[in-house]
Design a protein around this nucleic acid. Sequence first.
RNA 1: GGAAGCAUAGCUCAGCUGGGAUGAGCGCUCGCCUGACUAGCGGGAGGCCAAGGGUUCGAGCCCCUUUGCUUCCACCA
Length: 892
Amino acid sequence: MGKELAKTYDPSGLEDRLYQKWIQKKYFHAEVDEERTPFTIVIPPPNITGQLHMGHALDNTMQDILIRFKRMQGYNVLWQPGTDHASIATEVRITETLKAEGVDKRELGREKFLERAWAWKKEYGGRIVSQLKKMGSSCDWDRERFTMDEGCNRAVTEVFVKMHQKGYIYKGARIINWCPVCNTSISDAEVEYQEQAGHLWHIKYPLMQEDGTPSSTEFLTFATTRPETMLGDTAVAIHPDDERYKHLIGRSVMLPLMNRPIPVVTDTYVDMEFGTGVVKITPAHDPNDFEVGKRHDLPVINVMNDDATINGNGGKYAGMERYEARKVIVEELDRLGLLVKVEDYSHNVGTHDRCKTTVEPLVKEQWFVKMEELIKPAVEAVKKGEIRLVPQRLEKIYFNWTDNIRDWCISRQLWWGHRIPAYYCDQCGEILVAAQAPEKCPKCGCSHFTQDPDTLDTWFSSALWPFETLGWPDRTRDLDYFYPTSVLVTGYDIIFFWVIRMIFSGYEHMGKPPFKTVLFHGLIRDSQGRKMSKSLGNGIDPLEIIDRYGADALRLTLITGNAPGNDMRFYYERVENSRNFANKVWNASRFILMNMEGREVSRPEVSSLEPADRWILSKLNTLVKEATDNMENFELGIAVQKVYDFIWDEFCDWYIEMVKPRLYNTDHVESQNAALWTLRTVLIDALKLLHPYMPFITEEIFCTLQSQEESIMISAWPRFQEERCFPREERDINIIKEAVRGIRNLRSERNVPPSRKASVIVVSDDTDVINAFSEGRLFFASLAYANEVSLYGKAEAGGRVDEQSAVSVVIPGATLYIPFAELVDMAQETERLEKEKKRLEGELARVNGMLSNERFLSKAPEAKVAEEKEKLARYTQMMEQVELRLARLKTQ
RNA sequence: GGAAGCAUAGCUCAGCUGGGAUGAGCGCUCGCCUGACUAGCGGGAGGCCAAGGGUUCGAGCCCCUUUGCUUCCACCA
């Protein structure tokens, strides 16, 4: 029947082979089929610069689990893959590469640079894709997309033009975050605030006198963290209600170093409590000051170049680097006696998330997306539950952002990306936004245009990903059928960058949400809880783990032992455990195959199934239900944990062991067949439940086990079956298990090796126990290392069981004895019984306490009360026994 | 300055809508080559569930307060 399996599971070689088979058989491929219900996931497109890291590994494992699960359930699943051009990330990389070759990006020129970029994409863009394949990802690779392919380009242009027409996209001079190293504007989301030690410089400006000269006695003192920006000060502000400064309203101060009078203005932005209650206003270099400047119609004097050196507006400081200028200016002010004091001061400084450079707020002409209206449906969707966030607590973070949303700066001074479809008339400067370059200027008739040199924020195209990958802006069948997608799986760290922007884009352009559920996961950290990062060198390469332990082990590790949305620490020990589990599954299967060898296994009549068979089938049935429910609720880790426990504990450690005597006994063909059939049936269903998590090993075993089947991944997901519920057998087997544990315990306490058999006497009047043992005596004996098992009622036991010469254990409904001549040491036994007595005393006190509590008796559910009464009876009985035994031991 | 999360066995973490923590893995420990598996099998020792208060017949779980750690957001110069 089946072929031989190796003694230990070796995933190497096997994984690639199976993946190839899946690809060849086109199992991953999806086509529109109106007869079936679609289930769609779009992949968070990895950057073409990317190398597979643990974050990808987790993200893709989760998606693949859902996809494989739904595929087996019969849904028409599509996992839409693709990659992201990653505008700034890629551009930075290529610029660095060029630099290493001694080539300056600007000298090379835009055209040549883009050639390089495309060549780079061609060479490395596929790397991350092949790495995703190593994980077992069942994406429909026939549909692979790229954010800068022809279709996506059209989508981006279409959206830009449409939103511009609707007034959602505008160009304006506003204060934006500028990265002087990357030489581009960046969005608010890309700014990372870092606590930095700095100084608070207290500086004073002299007040202007009536005669137009600065006073030498009257000053206004304020504090600043960035003294160099004073070169661009155009006012000093105080709070309108500040009594201390009321008399200064309408006057001016002299801006030192620049020798320019600037007005004292009043603005409620000023916090009277902070510092001296005076603020210098630099509209060109501070977002707040910019707003104050607008309210007071102050001039905006930009004193900085794009590379953060001081420009011509900075007088004699022109050309200085920003921190050098700071130093020189402070020294100069000190010399002039205008530096009051310097304090150490720790504050948050905005840095560029990619290069960690301190960003410079600058006033620049940029393109923006007006957010106020667009965001409304995105807020509503989550509030009304049209889009569900898992875990739900992330809604707070979501709303925190949407409630404080500001316009989105989308233009970037980069070359690699979607170029902005705006054209400027060379003659009159008229701006035309259109899909193609216009022929002639509607204003002046000129036919020469220059396209805007800027490109769009990477996330602009990512926001369209769920529908642009399905064919939008064309109205395709795919789009109709597969959109909205079912679930989005991603890390909570890109909720602002991506998730929110996809949501409002979906509503704006499709009129529908992009997905119904967002399943968030946390970060994978190192074993000390630190973020994995290149600079720390603490990153663990998933590919290396796959090489050593297999993709299945990695997948299982990433998905377990962690609550949804929480960060997780990565331990090699956990991967080893997963690998061990794979090996366990492998060997259980090997055992079953071995026993099926050369035998015809037929489906037995229900009546010929023995209690153990019914028990495991019943357990499996419960597992199917629970695991499926958990998966429907996105509790993937919980689901697979149950499957794991079932396979290792119930199936391997109990059922297989119970069934061994039947397998080795060739006299009872029917019993043997029932056992074999059950073994195979349970294994196959368990493999199916496990398949989404561990696709490779389950496929290999599944196909070995039944050569007529093509693949587990297209087999049907197990279903809960009412006729497979056997509560009675579950109860019986539990009794046997309890008894086995009791016996093993007795033996272990006395260090009796399994090879030494001993007889067991079961004494009980309990019909359940009697029934369980009459049916299960055979495997009980094997599990309890017994050479003989006798069963007596209490009455008949009197004459046959000599309690003085046996060790015993009490289980619910029965007492088990082993003649202890061969096993027991007296002193040890006494000590043990004393301990047991103490424990029982405690238990009895507790139960008695509860049962004498009036309120408990009146308010607790009946079942609970009954349960406690039962315990009382049991404990009392056990106590009697213990006391009796103790007494007897002492008299000996 | 706001907000969230975490605090349970030596370590890392599970514990659903409140009902005895037989919690999991690793580690430790004792015993086993028991005819699939030593990447294994069978035992065991480790927890006043961060502190304090409250609600309840009953709290790891709900409410309040406190402490410690982590993270996110934010324009306090």
